[in-house]
Design a protein around this nucleic acid. Structure first.
Lengths: 249, 249
DNA sequence: CAAGTTAGAGAACAGTGCTCTCGACAAGAG
DNA sequence: CTCTTGTCGAGAGCACTGTTCTCTAACTTG
């Protein structure tokens, strides 16, 4: 009896698996997804290439593993950033955490959300769960804000007015599949927010903003301020005076 | 004297170059940028691999050539879509042409705007010219709209109010370098529009919207309608009545 | 302790980008 | 028309890639 329950072999396996993941991540940062070489990983870890195949059946599976890990890490960061009592603070925290993680981990971000590879489709098992965590979390926050009456009624009305039937149907299908009970206009606002957030962040991380705004931080802050100011109203008094609706005078 | 001015060799060279580009593009669509194999291209064209190096000094240069071609094609499509007398129509045309080309050419779009590869940076020669064409064209349109008094004053004022000094400075630096004479708030609105457009389109092309909206077309139409409705006012009467400003009652 | 299982090493295969050399042929000069 | 010059394409070869196979050593279990 060498070791209680784990066994010597099982423990070494866990250690090596972790070492492989670390080395692969470093290799990913250095050479990108396309340049990730199993031989380089094996060299870093200090084992033969063929030994890698005891842990991952192929290079694609290794990449999938890294994708799931990246998505989960990103979701962890976002959920941590959204841990505020006040929903406005929570939403702002989500936004900044989303961007902060992306900027700090460009290689992982690119791997998880970047250009799709024609041949490869991430197997749905782990990726869908991890990939929708952030979306579901954000929607939960918006649902809470709505329940607390913190969403600006004017903004919601205007959003409902310009909501097309096609979009409404698809949003409701999605929300039904994830059994979220949220009014359709809140779903629409959620999608707007999410697209704006991810679109902006991905453009920054992929370097598309660099020619115009080499330092995108102030611009990002502007956008989130404007977006949240229009959507969620301050906690203050119970019944805030409604904004002047167009045509009310 | 075999041929007038071109010469037999020069003509064959042009033909082969075109054939290589076509084959490379097809190969790109099939296997993505990472999987683009010079040997496969050579096989398609019907020449030896080494002969390819008479036309492109390396695989990266071939990819750069494809990137520049994609950027130029995209810009051509956008400029064609923006060829309307009325600026509102022009801006709407730009938006839809931008998306239509991207959706029709996902591989090229991903190559030009997708995940950056750590080792590789596109040599600035051709790429900056082609890469900024769309941006400069769109800004020109906004400048024209502004000169014609078609931009909503309220929207511009609000945008100017929430413009941060950092963003303003970077925008002015960019506009000075491209000698565009445009008020800063118009620059800010231009950046907003561009980020919203590209962010949305890239999310659709990269498949990030598919779980929520499998058919993103109606959503895209919604967004462009809302964005343009808020920004540019109809051609109609010369002095349209200003919208009720917050606190005006 | 012996049998059985598993982990790792090494060789080998087909594929890759890239370089070099060599024969063929068009282009221009005399 | 001939001869030199320069280009073009082919082929072999190098170092690298992912993947599979076989074989040995060592842990695990009865």
């Amino acid at each position: 009896m060498t070791n209680a329950s784990t066994g010597l072999r099982a423990r070494r396996r866990q250690e090596l698996l972790a070492a492989i993941r670390t080395a692969a991540l470093e290799e990913l940062r250095r050479s990108g997804a396309a340049g990730l070489s199993l031989r380089a990983v094996a060299r870093d870890v200090g084992i033969a290439v063929s030994a890698l195949y005891r842990y991952f059946p192929s290079r694609d599976e290794l990449l999938t593993d890294l994708i799931v890990a990246a998505l989960d890490e990103h979701a962890d960061a976002v959920e941590a950033g959204g841990a505020h009592e006040d929903v406005a603070d929570a939403l702002r925290g989500v936004w900044h955490a989303y961007r902060a993680w992306a900027v700090a981990h460009p290689a992982e971000f690119g791997l998880a959300y970047g250009t799709p590879v024609p041949g490869y489709v991430a197997p749905a098992e782990g990726t869908v769960r991890a990939g929708t965590r952030i979306g579901r979390f954000a929607l939960g926050l918006l649902a809470r804000a709505n329940a607390e009456g913190r969403l600006d009624p004017d903004t919601l009305h205007q959003r409902a007015d310009r909501l097309s039937p096609g979009t409404a149907e698809q949003l409701e299908t999605w929300s039904a599949r994830h059994d979220q009970q949220v009014p359709t206009e809140v779903l629409a606002v959620w999608l707007d927010l999410f697209v704006r957030l991810h679109g902006l962040v991905s453009m920054e991380v992929f370097g598309l903003l660099r020619p115009v705004t080499p330092d995108a931080a102030p611009y990002v802050a502007e956008v989130v301020d404007a977006e949240l100011a229009a959507l969620v109203r301050p906690r203050g008094p119970r019944s805030a005076p409604a904004r002047p609706t167009a045509g009310s005078c």
